[in-house]
C-alpha cells in the first residue's frame, strides 16, 4: 500500500504545512492588520507584492528563491556567514519558500476580516478601558474568527498542494525534502498508479473535508458578524 518513502513524504508535507501556517499567522496577522488600517499611499505596492504568488508561475518564484537561498544569494550567504549552510535543498529552505508562496492565502482573508470590523467598535472598547492589546484579543480576534479559520485552512492546504516552488528549491530529496505532491508525480512517472491513487485520493479527500469544515463553521458564525 504505502511505501516508507510515501509515509515520510506525508510526514514532511504535514510538518512543512504546519510550520508554514504558524509562521504565516505570526507574520500575516500584523501585516494584514496594518494593510486593513493604514492610509499610507504606498499601500497598493505592498498589497501587490503580497498578491504576487497568486499570479506568478510557481517556477518563477522558485527560481528567484533558489538563487536567493543558494550559496551566492543574499539569504544563503547570510546563512553561511552565521555558521550555517546554504538553504537551497533543505527543509528550512522549503519553509521559507512556502511562507512566500502561501502569504496571500493567509493575508487576504485576514485583511478582509479586519477591514470589516468597524473602527467604532475599537473606539468603544477603548472608552470601556480596554488597552489596544486587550482590544485585539477581546474584540478583534473573536470578530475576525471566520477570517482566521479561512486563513489557516487556505494557508495549510495551499502549502500541502504546492509543487513548482518545492521542486525548484527543495530538489525532491526523499526523506528530507520530498513532499506528497512530488511523490505523486514520481509515482506517475514510474507508472506506479496504485500508489499515486492512494496519495492523490487521500489529498483530495483531505482538502475537501477541510473546505467543508471552513464553510460550515463560517456560516455558523456569519450570523454574529452582521
Amino acid at each position: 500500500m504505502l511505501h516508507e518513502a510515501d509515509i515520510s513524504a506525508l510526514w514532511i508535507t504535514l510538518k512543512l504545512a504546519s510550520i508554514t501556517t504558524v509562521i504565516l499567522l505570526l507574520v500575516g496577522t500584523p501585516l494584514a492588520w496594518w494593510l486593513a488600517r493604514t492610509h499610507w499611499r504606498g499601500k497598493p505596492l505592498v498589497e501587490a507584492v503580497v498578491a504576487l504568488p497568486l499570479v506568478l508561475p510557481p517556477t518563477v518564484l522558485g527560481f528567484y528563491l533558489l538563487i536567493a537561498l543558494g550559496p551566492y544569494g543574499p539569504v544563503g550567504s547570510l546563512s553561511i556567514a552565521l555558521g550555517g549552510r546554504p538553504l537551497a535543498f533543505t527543509f528550512t529552505g522549503l519553509v521559507i519558500g512556502s511562507v512566500f508562496y502561501s502569504l496571500p492565502f493567509v493575508v487576504q482573508p485576514l485583511q478582509g476580516a479586519f477591514t470589516a470590523i468597524s473602527k467604532q467598535l475599537l473606539e468603544a472598547a477603548a472608552t470601556l478601558r480596554a488597552s489596544p492589546l486587550d482590544t485585539f484579543f477581546s474584540i478583534i480576534i473573536p470578530l475576525a474568527r471566520p477570517g482566521f479559520l479561512t486563513a489557516i485552512v487556505l494557508g495549510f492546504a495551499h502549502t500541502v498542494g504546492e509543487f513548482g516552488v518545492v521542486l525548484m528549491i527543495g530538489g525532491n530529496i526523499p526523506g528530507r525534502t520530498q513532499v506528497l505532491s512530488i511523490a505523486i508525480y514520481d509515482h506517475v512517472e514510474n507508472l506506479e498508479y496504485v500508489q499515486a491513487h492512494w496519495l492523490a485520493g487521500g489529498l483530495l479527500l483531505l482538502s475537501f473535508l477541510m473546505l467543508v469544515a471552513v464553510y460550515t463553521f463560517n456560516r455558523r458564525f456569519a450570523v454574529v458578524n452582521l
Binding site: Q120, A124, A125, A126, T127, A130, S131, I139, V224, L226
Partner: peptide, 20 residues
C-alpha cells in the same frame, strides 16, 4: 492620556455594541 485611561463613559451615536 490615551482613551482607555480616561475615566469617561462614551455613548456612541450608533450604540457600538459588540456583536459577538
Amino acid at each position: 492620556v490615551p482613551p482607555h485611561k480616561r475615566p469617561i463613559g462614551y455613548v456612541f451615536q450608533g450604540a457600538a455594541l459588540f456583536p459577538h
